Computed example of a mutant assay.
Amino acid sequence: MDYQAAIISSAVLDILRAFDPRVVGTLPLGLAVPGSDVDIVCHASEPTILAEAIWAHYRSCDGFVLYQWRALERPLVARFQWGGWPFEVFGDRRPVDQQRGWLHFEIERRLLALDDGRLRNAVARQRSQGIKTEPAFATVLGISGDPYLGLLDLAGESDAQLHLRLSHLMNSSHGIATA
Rank of each mutant, 00 (worst) to 15 (best):
Q161H: 13
D20Q: 14
I143N: 01
V41L: 10
R109Q: 14
V41D: 07
L13W: 00
L16N: 06
A32D: 12
E157F: 15
Y58H: 05
F105W: 13
D37A: 08
R120P: 00
L31Q: 07
L151M: 13
T178H: 14
V41P: 02
R74T: 03
I54C: 03
D153W: 03
A51P: 00
D92E: 11
G25L: 04
A11Q: 15
M1H: 03
Y148P: 01
L151V: 05
V41W: 05
C42D: 04
Q68S: 05
M170Y: 12
G156V: 08
E157I: 05
N171C: 11
Y58S: 07
R70Q: 12
P95C: 01
W69L: 01
L149V: 13
Y148S: 00
A11I: 00
T178N: 06
F90G: 02
S144G: 13
G156P: 05
E73V: 03
E157K: 14
A44V: 10
R59G: 00
H168G: 11
T139M: 12
L169E: 09
S60C: 05
R17I: 12
S36I: 06
K132I: 02
G101Q: 07
A6R: 03
S172K: 03
G30A: 04
T178M: 09
R93D: 01
R79E: 11
T26G: 02
F19Y: 12
Q129V: 02
R120V: 06
H174P: 00
I49V: 15
A160E: 15
S144T: 15
T48F: 07
D62L: 13
H57I: 06
R100V: 11
D20T: 14
F80N: 01
I15C: 01
A56E: 13
